[in-house]
Simulated assay, not measured.
Amino acid sequence: MADADKKNPNEEELIDITQPDALEDVDDDTVAQINAAGMTSGDDEIETLRAERDDMRDRFMRALADAENSRKRSDRDRREAEQYGGSKLARDMLPVYDNLRRALDAATDEQRAKASALLEGVELTLRELLNVFGKHGIEPVVPEVGDAFDPQLHQAMFEAPLPETKAGDIIQVMTEGFLLHDRLLRPAQVGVSSNTG
């Protein structure tokens, strides 16, 4: 007889509960004990694993949301840097525009006749500066005398009563304003009517 077939009389025979007919010869109390022991520890373990899974899923979803928010923030920051990054340089270039405009406005007819080539060069320089501004999203805000004062685009430098005007009408334009895309780079400086009647 082989050693595997020999049974020790002092050993209890183990039941393989994975076999379909294994519990047929076992009494009901033993089956209840096996079920209680197996189910309690297994249920606890399953509940622990479910709790860990839910915790990990929650952490994963939060990390995913944080990553998405970071991506959106960096995209927005990149777009803003692209659009508005040159605002300091643009603001520094506005006095150059103002001075070229003043030079043209100050020239009399006699000076225009004598120095037409010089003034034409200044006009071309001013036009080229405006073209460069346009390429970079810088647009002039040019109010007209008689327009209504808009505090979003204009800066009132003085108020004066002027006949035949309404309160809040622009009566003089001192400097043009500029927008950089949709942001105000510099307000137009204007004089405003203070008529009350």
Rank of each mutant, 00 (worst) to 15 (best):
A115M: 14
I170D: 03
V145A: 04
E128G: 09
F133L: 06
G121Q: 13
A107M: 10
N99D: 01
H154D: 08
A167L: 04
P95G: 07
A113H: 10
A106M: 08
R127V: 08
D169C: 06
D182F: 06
L184Q: 00
Q111T: 15
L184F: 00
V96N: 00
G134Q: 09
L153M: 14
G168Q: 02
I138H: 02
L129M: 13
M93W: 08
T108F: 14
E176G: 12
S116K: 07
S116R: 12
E139M: 09
F158H: 03
T125Q: 08
E128D: 14
Q152M: 11
P143G: 05
L104P: 02
A106W: 00
G134E: 13
S116W: 07
H154C: 08
L184M: 01
D92P: 01
A148R: 13
R102V: 07
E123Y: 02
G177L: 02
P95Y: 08
P143W: 08
R101T: 10
E128L: 11
D150G: 03
D92N: 09
M174W: 13
L179N: 15
L185F: 02
Q155L: 13
H181Y: 14
T175F: 09
L130V: 15
H136C: 03
V141Y: 14
L124Q: 15
L126K: 13
G168S: 03
R101F: 07
R101A: 12
Q155V: 03
A148K: 12
P95F: 00
M157V: 11
H154S: 05
D105Q: 14
P163F: 03
R112E: 05
L129R: 11
V173S: 06
A103E: 04
L153I: 10
L104D: 04
F133M: 09
D147R: 00
V142Y: 00
T108W: 14
P95Q: 00
E128K: 15
A188F: 05
G137Q: 10
P163C: 01
A113L: 11
L130W: 10
D182C: 03
A188S: 04
L179T: 12
P161E: 08
L100I: 02
K135R: 13
R102G: 00
P140C: 05
T108G: 15
Q152C: 08
A160C: 03
E159R: 08
T108Y: 15
R112C: 05
L129E: 12
P140I: 02
A160W: 00
T175V: 14
D92W: 05
A148I: 11
L153K: 14
E139D: 09
A113W: 04
E139N: 08
E144A: 12
D105C: 01
V132Q: 14
K114S: 08
T125D: 09
G121N: 14
V145P: 03
T165R: 07
M174T: 15
Q152I: 11
D150N: 09
T165S: 06
D105K: 11
R186T: 07
I138Q: 02
A160Q: 14
D92I: 01
I171Q: 07
L119V: 13
L119I: 11
Q111P: 09
D147Y: 00
M174G: 12
H181C: 01
L118G: 01
L130R: 14
